[in-house]
Design a binder for these strands. Structure first.
Length: 439
RNA sequence: GUGUGAUUGGUGAAGUGGUUAACACGCCGGAUUGUGGCUCCGGUAUGCAAGGGUUCGAUCCCCUUAUCGCACCCCA
């Protein structure tokens, strides 16, 4: 048997319904925020991600899906959304648009070569936004408010927004110096990973899980104390605007983020479900990235949300009960082979007028047809047998009221519409099976 | 990339180095020869992830591979 590739999954059944529902909620949300939908290719020239995401990030160093195409071009399946959208922004000259800032949203598959585990896959969906051409702190607050509103709409309440500022280039330069100086004598007391980080990327030592409670890290210099005046002002304003939007947050000077392009504002949203915490959203400013990719100087900010992580929360919290289940208006049953012709046409006619209808393809016994109809959640079953064909009528039964009628061909639609309408008016979509519907 | 646990019908699973792989649900059929949700009866894996090895004999022991789970690294 051929298995699916490691770290991938088939989306079907109940999960597929949840996914479509999520997409719907997101689309409505993004319309209200006036963001434009964008879809970029699944693969791009490898260079884009090397230069965009940054060669020192783990994502680029060990997690990309790279391949050489038949024209000897180096290609990479996108590991994240931002670089592609920046590329598109530059290539399509969105910056020349009179409407500004230009704001985009996407929900797409991303690829990272990782060892799968809970909430991490090799192929996964991210929902994200990117907003270009403004360094207004109001935009920072808006961007953070999007995933917060989304989670609110979904009913996911136990969340924490953590925010930090990485400042500008000068901030990071002076901070790095201070941090290295501070850690220089103490590095021997930290874990082996941290020793490694010390030479490669000392900032990462701050969010080490092993040493996170160590006094060495707790007393380490904080980047927020090294912000330049303009970065500090920006950060303070972002926090003020978050207050205006009544978004609870926590300033966490240890948030560093794994992508190299971030500047100033960075943030994460963590959800805690049954004592387990999971980062479900991450984002920040990238005021230099557009230039780095040879576009005009353009400030920008964005975020990404892990769709599978959201779906697993929806699942564990059972927030999917309001999502409508599959329903069928009619189930058409030919009881003999001779009845197939009429049943097939009738089924088609019902579909063409907008009803959802299904046919018994398997010439089942009448008993199992009723069972099928029940499994399919059908409202009506339409039986066509020997006698019906001979005398030119159908037997139609309302499966919840058990009322049965014999109708001529031309009466079927009228009857169904009448019944379905009154169903909507009178029925409280009751789950009470004994409930009798008024006519 | 490292460590660790797992993989048995449509599903949940029990189990054993030796001829029929438990049990439950589901499904199909019948009792009721054209009417569902209850009941009763019957049927339902030539197979125990794939390949190789040890053995007289392997679903069970060993090796390899694949996939899944969990943790680390890192991240959404």
């Amino acid at each position: 048997m051929i298995n699916k590739p490691k770290g991938t999954y088939d989306l079907y059944g109940k999960d597929a319904k949840v996914f479509l529902y999520l997409e719907d909620v997101i689309k409505t949300l993004m319309d209200s925020y006036n963001y434009e939908y964008i879809k970029t290719p699944v693969f791009e020239q490898s260079n884009l991600f090397h230069r965009g995401v940054g060669p020192s990030s783990d994502i680029i160093r060990k997690e990309t899906y790279d391949f050489i195409d038949r024209g000897d071009r180096n290609m990479t399946l996108r590991p994240e959304g931002t670089a592609s959208i920046v590329r598109s922004y530059i290539e399509n000259k969105f910056y020349a648009n009179n409407i500004s800032p230009q704001k985009f949203w996407y929900i797409d598959k991303m690829y990272r070569y990782e060892r799968p585990q809970k909430g991490r896959l090799r192929e996964f969906f991210q929902f994200g936004c990117e907003a270009f051409d403004s360094d207004s702190p109001m935009l920072d607050a808006e961007i953070i408010s999007i995933p917060v509103s989304l989670l609110e709409r979904l009913g996911i309440t136990n969340i924490k927004v953590r925010i930090n500022s990485l400042g500008d280039e000068q901030t990071r330069k002076s901070y790095k110096e201070a941090l290295v100086n501070y850690l220089n004598e103490k590095i021997d007391d930290l874990c082996s990973d941290c020793k490694d980080r010390f030479t490669k990327n000392p900032l990462r030592i701050l969010d080490c899980k092993i040493d996170k409670d160590s006094p060495i890290i707790k007393n380490a210099p904080k980047i927020t104390d090294y912000l330049t005046d303009s970065s500090k002002e920006h950060f303070d304003e972002v926090l003020e605007y978050l207050n205006d939007l009544e978004i609870n947050y926590e300033v966490d000077p240890y948030i560093i983020r794994g992508l190299d392009y971030y500047t100033d504002t960075v943030f994460e949203i963590e959800a805690t479900i049954n004592d387990e915490s999971m980062i479900i959203c991450g984002g920040g400013r990238y005021d230099k990235l557009v230039e780095d990719l040879e576009g005009p100087q353009t400030k920008a900010i964005g975020f990404a949300v892990g769709i599978e992580r959201i779906m697993s929360i929806i699942d564990t919290l059972k927030l999917d009960e309001d999502i409508p289940k599959n329903e069928l208006d009619t189930f058409v049953v030919p009881l003999t082979k001779q009845a197939n012709h009429f049943a097939l046409s009738l089924n088609q006619a019902l579909r063409l007028v907008g009803l959802s209808s299904e046919l018994d393809y398997k010439q089942r016994s009448i008993k199992s047809c009723f069972k099928q109809a029940e499994l399919l959640n059908a409202k009506f079953i339409i039986l066509i047998g020997e006698d019906e064909i001979k005398n030119d009528y159908v037997t139609i039964k309302n499966l919840s009221t058990k009322e049965e009628k014999q109708l001529k061909n031309h009466e079927i639609l009228e009857y169904l519409f009448e019944q379905l309408d009154s169903d909507e008016e009178h029925c409280c979509s009751c789950h009470n099976k004994d409930h009798k519907h008024e006519n």
